[in-house]
């Protein structure tokens, strides 16, 4: 069995890992077909409109599965560019001096002297709707980001519905708004390069909840729901290990 790839925290990445990650994004941003950064970003809001967020009906339960499938497909496209890359998660609970809101690797405008940082911004060029601009952020005060205690409160929800609504509403939505700019509205949020690491943190918290609770009372009638436009059903994304990755802080192989 192939080894699981471990998605790292942004704050724990080595400079070589950050360079490889930037390289993958740069390469995806340099192409325009269905392997490109713009193609994947455009699936979420405009022009694709495939994302699932909370409502009072069933799609509330698809928020986490749909975004897991989304990140999985995006990560594979990034690994097609640079095979060592895995998506890193942005731990919003960290405070200075460990992290000052937006992680430095995403906040720096330029890298390696004067090269534009592909993690800082992406140039959107859409014909319909007509959007031609570079993504930007307007982050709020660092203290308005979720704390570790608030994350633990959300993880403490034993009921699936309570958990997914709290994770989406109290943490996910809040960080989108905190980041501001393009991240601040559904239609264009995925074009901001930090979107993927924000959602990687959300996916990680779901996995941590699953490690504690299993799949809880997840509605079984949704298990065969297709997560369009991906060739995946809900049941296919319930285990991150089945998708080839994990969020464990460390992996130590025991010799046998």
């Amino acid at each position: 069995m192939a080894d699981l790839r471990i998605r790292p925290g942004v704050h724990n990445m080595s400079s070589a890992e950050v360079s490889a990650f930037r390289d993958a994004y740069s390469q995806m941003m340099a192409i325009t077909d269905n392997r490109s950064y713009g193609f994947f970003a455009g699936l979420h809001g405009v022009p694709g409109g495939f994302c699932k967020h909370s409502t009072q009906s069933a799609p509330a339960f698809l928020f986490l599965p749909w975004h897991r499938a989304y990140l999985y497909n995006f990560e594979l496209a990034a690994r097609d560019r640079v095979s060592s890359v895995t998506l890193p998660w942005w731990d919003w609970t960290l405070r200075p001096p460990r992290q000052d809101g937006i992680p430095k690797s995403f906040a720096d405008r330029v890298v390696d002297g004067n090269k534009p940082n592909p993690l800082f911004s992406y140039r959107i060029d859409l014909a319909n709707p007509p959007i031609h601009q570079s993504t930007r952020r307007e982050p709020g005060p660092v203290d308005d980001l979720p704390t570790q205690a608030e994350v633990e409160d959300v993880l403490g929800n034993a009921d699936w519905t309570d958990f997914t609504l709290a994770l989406e509403g109290q943490l996910h939505n809040r960080v989108h708004g905190w980041t501001g700019g393009h991240m601040g509205v559904v239609a264009v949020a995925a074009f901001d390069p930090i979107f993927w690491s924000h959602h990687c943190m959300v996916d990680r918290l779901w996995w941590m909840w699953q490690v504690r609770n299993g799949n809880g009372n997840f509605p079984t009638d949704l298990l065969d729901t297709v997560l369009a436009p991906f060739n995946m059903r809900v049941r296919d994304v319930l285990s991150v290990n089945d998708l080839g990755y994990d969020y464990a802080a460390a992996q130590t192989v025991v010799p046998i």
């Binding site: 509403g169 939505n173 239609a187």
Partner: peptide
């Protein structure tokens, strides 16, 4: 509480009207 808004209507007229007139044979997403 925190609302992640769609940012207004980026589509044509009617794009953001919620269709409440669906029947039992309409299997499209809500």
């Amino acid at each position: 509480f925190y609302i992640f808004g769609h940012g207004g209507c980026f589509g044509d007229v009617g794009h953001c009207e919620v269709n409440g007139h669906r029947d039992a044979y309409d299997f499209r997403d809500s």
